[in-house]
């Protein structure tokens, strides 16, 4: 067991899933975020385009990510995000996954998303450092 003790203090990278959900085909923002997260030292799983909420849930659960970042530019966030949240809850993965949303979310929709459990919403023009800093500070420590 000494080997275990030896590893105890080691930092592990923050694991993130960057997910494109629904029908919009704009993934430039998701790519930029994925690269920036990688450069910040995170392990980033990228889902690819046009994922259904169930597929996002599957990926988040199987990859055991600390952070789930959903990029939505289609305007369908009010129907898509709740489905993802339900799925995470079904697998017992909601409580310790930091859920963030990026994209174009009108101000009036934000309170509802926050009530659902979205920790932060990053609109267009958010400085990358702000997003990275937020993730560093809020990613669950569960080891």
């Amino acid at each position: 067991m000494s080997a275990d003790a030896e590893q105890h203090g080691r930092n592990r990278p923050i694991r993130c899933l960057i997910a494109k959900v629904g029908l919009d085909g704009h993934d430039r923002g998701a790519h930029v975020i994925a690269r920036a997260f990688r450069d910040a030292g995170f392990e980033v799983v990228y889902s690819g385009l046009h994922r259904a909420p169930d597929e996002i849930v599957q990926a988040a659960v199987q990859e055991d990510v600390d952070v789930l970042g959903i990029s939505i530019l289609s305007g369908a966030h009010n129907s898509l995000v709740p489905k993802v949240v339900d799925g995470l809850k079904r697998h017992g993965a909601f409580a310790d996954t930091l859920l963030i949303v990026g994209g174009i979310i009108p101000e009036e929709d934000r309170p509802e998303l926050r009530d659902l459990g979205v920790a932060a919403i990053f609109g267009p023009g958010t400085p990358m450092e702000e997003t990275i800093e937020f993730v560093r500070e809020n990613a669950p420590r569960r080891e």
């Binding site: 990278p13 994925a34 690269r35 997260f37 990688r38 450069d39 910040a40 030292g41 995170f42 392990e43 980033v44 799983v45 990228y46 889902s47 690819g48 990926a59 990859e63």
Partner: peptide
């Protein structure tokens, strides 16, 4: 990445 230690794991796509 040998530089940041981070990585983009793209096989899932």
């Amino acid at each position: 990445s040998p530089y940041s230690g981070g990585s983009v794991l793209g096989d899932r796509i």
